[in-house]
Every structure is written in structure tokens, then in C-alpha cells.
Amino acid sequence: MKARVTVTLKNGVLDPQGKAIEGALGSLGFDGVGSVRQGKVFDVELTAGSEGEAQDKLKSMCEQLLANTVIEDYAITLVE
């Protein structure tokens, strides 16, 4: 089974890297960019008996390692 996990900073947590990227887009002449927030993507291949089991495993992985839930949110999508 393949899954994509997206980890993003929570609302209200400052993202200086996103701000710097936003500034660089402005320097390149892209106007109308409201804001940029930087995140991470993990493509995970795993073995699981069912989609539900895969979801549970991935949630556990996010809670324990992939995301720092003090500052980050995560989203799990089963790709195939």
C-alpha cells in the first residue's frame, strides 16, 4: 500500500522559511502571492491488511515521529 503524508505548520506558528520564500517569489516578479507556508511530504510504502489498518498505522507514525504535534498538523492520503 502507498500513502502520502503531508505535514504542515499549525496556524499561528510563525514560519520564517515560508516568509523568506514568499519574499523571493516577490523578487522574481510574482505578484499577488498572499502568503507561503512551507511543509513536508512523506511517501510511505507499507503493508497492511486493510485501508483502515493502514490509516491507523500511519496515524501512529505521525503522532510518534513524522510530525511534532506541538507545532505541526498532518494529513494522510492513501494513494493506492
Binding site: L14, P16, N68, I71
Partner: peptide
């Protein structure tokens, strides 16, 4: 220590990068 949960909060990239 913060990542292990022994201390609260998190340490993020410095404000001025």
C-alpha cells in the same frame, strides 16, 4: 528533550534564518 516530551514546547528555525 523537547522532542522526547521530557520538556514542553519546540525549537524552531531562528527568526532571521
Amino acid at each position: 528533550l523537547t522532542e522526547s516530551g521530557l520538556l514542553p514546547g519546540a525549537l524552531m528555525r531562528n527568526r532571521d534564518l
